[in-house]
Amino acid sequence: MDTPACATLRTRFDGDIAYLQIHRPQANNTINEQLIREFTAALDVCDTRCKIVVIEGLPEVFCFGADFKELEQSSEGGESRQQDPRPMYALWGRLATGPFVSIAHVRGKANAGGIGFVAACDIVLADAAAVFSLSELLFGLMPACVLPFLIRRIGFAKANYMTLMTQPVTVQQAQEWGLVDAYEENSDNLLRKNLLRLRRLNKTGVARYKRYLHAIDGSIDAAEDAAITANREVFADSQNLQRIARYVRTGQFPWEGDS
């Protein structure tokens, strides 16, 4: 199967199953514009040829959210080039509504925008060491684009709690809340067991089912404009950008004093 060459994404195909691995080990598996472009191009292939799409990360970190170094570099010299959040939102929307079964296979840490990938998927499988967090408010930001997908999966109250507390949630708690469907010590084995069952489905049936689900649940489309506006507002705030730049340079969180 022909797919574009990728620098941030590793792709593997097994018949009509696609494995898309976020692979930015040098950047803690964070999200940058290139990853969004390459992921979107990979889904273009999956739309027509794949019945199942498995999203994976690295063993220690699934995805850690926005690439703060890229954000800091874009605002150097006092001239901030505001990034467009709409392609990222559209990418998660495709995982939620596309004509395939989307599976998030989470090992290690899923934080901030990483939760967007998780919550957008139809099925979430994890290993016993997986943790889930929304850290945005620590920097004066908010998970604006994540929340429509997260609320759709776990409800308003739990999504609000995760946002306000900013602390990691264990895989056990995540399963109780409905963010994770199943977890095992050996998540590779868990994934294999799920794929054995899902292989029995046919792509036409899956595509029709996903279209129907999207038709009766318009929450993702309804929230898009508000999510994009809120995202742009917090990432245009000069104080927030200063907090991000300080964290990139020193590793200190906003509440920590200067050394």
Rank of each mutant, 00 (worst) to 15 (best):
V169I: 11
T48S: 08
A7P: 04
L9A: 01
A66S: 02
I154D: 06
A130D: 00
R12K: 06
D84H: 10
S102N: 05
R249L: 09
K51S: 10
W92M: 11
T30L: 14
T40L: 08
I216F: 02
A110N: 02
T48C: 04
V171C: 05
E184S: 02
A66C: 08
S259E: 04
K69S: 14
S75G: 11
W177E: 15
A182N: 11
V61H: 09
D225V: 08
N28R: 14
L191H: 02
P25C: 15
Y89P: 09
S238D: 09
G257L: 15
Y183E: 06
F139C: 07
C63H: 03
A222D: 00
I55S: 03
F149S: 01
V54A: 02
L164W: 09
M1E: 01
Q34V: 15
D14V: 12
R249A: 12
T170E: 07
I115E: 00
T40V: 06
G108R: 00
G108P: 02
N111R: 05
V171R: 00
C145Q: 06
K158T: 11
G77N: 07
D258L: 14
P99N: 11
N28P: 13
T204E: 04
D2Q: 07
D217N: 08
F149V: 03
I154C: 03
T97Y: 10
D225I: 06
V131T: 14
I154T: 00
C50Y: 02
M165W: 15
G108N: 00
G178A: 12
A159K: 06
A41M: 14
A126R: 02
F253I: 09
K69W: 10
R86M: 14
G140I: 06
Q34L: 15
R243I: 10
P4S: 01
G257E: 14
C50R: 03
S102A: 12
I52G: 01
C46I: 05
Y212A: 14
F100T: 14
L9C: 00
L191F: 01
G98D: 12
A110G: 01
C145I: 14
A144L: 09
L141P: 01
L213C: 12
L137I: 13
P254C: 12
F64K: 00
Q26R: 15
I55V: 15
E72F: 13
G15R: 07
A96Y: 03
Q172P: 10
N240I: 04
V118T: 08
I36H: 07
F100M: 15
L125V: 13
Y209S: 12
E136I: 06
D127Q: 08
L43R: 05
